[in-house]
Computed example of a mutant assay.
Amino acid sequence: MGNLRVTKKGIRLEGISEFLLPLYVKEIHSRKDSPLVLQSDRNVTVNARNHLGQLTGQLTVGADAVEAQCKRFEVRASESGKVLFSADEDEIVIGADRLKVTDLNLLLDLW
């Protein structure tokens, strides 16, 4: 395990660490000059729960797919915050100024 210190703001863990069981925390931050890296030999799953502990959203990054299970999924532009893509049970919205389809068969399948 990396260097572990208790501070006024919480626990500070530096270096590479391995967690064998689930980790429950309010926030995880990386240093400003370093990325936050999560690794798994199977997948990485992030769960969101309500105040009753019920699962309200889940994002799973696996070897073959990235899956989101939630009421609504959005992709936003990093600078403007504009919704570029959103999907829910009733509709899919593409909010980009331009839509480029690179496979005509894909476009025909949509119709």
Results as ranks from 00 to 15, higher is better:
residue 81 G to L: 00
residue 70 C to S: 10
residue 63 A to K: 14
residue 60 T to S: 09
residue 84 L to H: 01
residue 104 L to C: 04
residue 46 V to W: 09
residue 88 D to M: 07
residue 97 D to W: 02
residue 85 F to C: 01
residue 104 L to P: 06
residue 82 K to P: 01
residue 11 I to K: 12
residue 23 L to A: 07
residue 108 L to R: 13
residue 40 S to K: 05
residue 89 E to M: 02
residue 23 L to S: 07
residue 84 L to E: 00
residue 15 G to V: 05
residue 46 V to P: 07
residue 45 T to P: 06
residue 11 I to C: 03
residue 105 N to I: 06
residue 81 G to A: 01
residue 66 V to P: 04
residue 56 T to G: 01
residue 17 S to C: 11
residue 27 E to L: 10
residue 57 G to A: 15
residue 16 I to F: 15
residue 26 K to F: 15
residue 95 G to E: 01
residue 107 L to W: 05
residue 61 V to S: 02
residue 58 Q to E: 10
residue 107 L to S: 07
residue 39 Q to I: 07
residue 80 S to R: 08
residue 39 Q to N: 09
residue 92 I to N: 00
residue 73 F to G: 03
residue 106 L to N: 11
residue 33 D to T: 12
residue 24 Y to S: 15
residue 111 W to Y: 14
residue 105 N to D: 14
residue 19 F to N: 07
residue 88 D to K: 12
residue 10 G to M: 04
residue 70 C to N: 08
residue 44 V to E: 03
residue 47 N to Y: 14
residue 108 L to D: 07
residue 28 I to S: 06
residue 102 T to L: 15
residue 51 H to E: 15
residue 10 G to R: 03
residue 106 L to C: 04
residue 51 H to M: 15
residue 14 E to G: 05
residue 24 Y to P: 02
residue 24 Y to R: 09
residue 95 G to W: 03
residue 27 E to W: 08
residue 22 P to S: 13
residue 27 E to I: 11
residue 61 V to T: 05
residue 25 V to T: 14
residue 76 R to G: 00
residue 15 G to Y: 04
residue 75 V to A: 07
residue 43 N to K: 02
residue 76 R to L: 06
residue 74 E to A: 02
residue 59 L to C: 15
residue 71 K to G: 11
residue 103 D to M: 05
residue 99 L to N: 03
residue 45 T to I: 13
residue 37 V to I: 12
residue 106 L to P: 03
residue 109 D to S: 14
residue 51 H to I: 15
residue 34 S to G: 10
residue 76 R to Y: 03
residue 30 S to P: 00
residue 78 S to I: 10
residue 26 K to V: 13
residue 28 I to A: 13
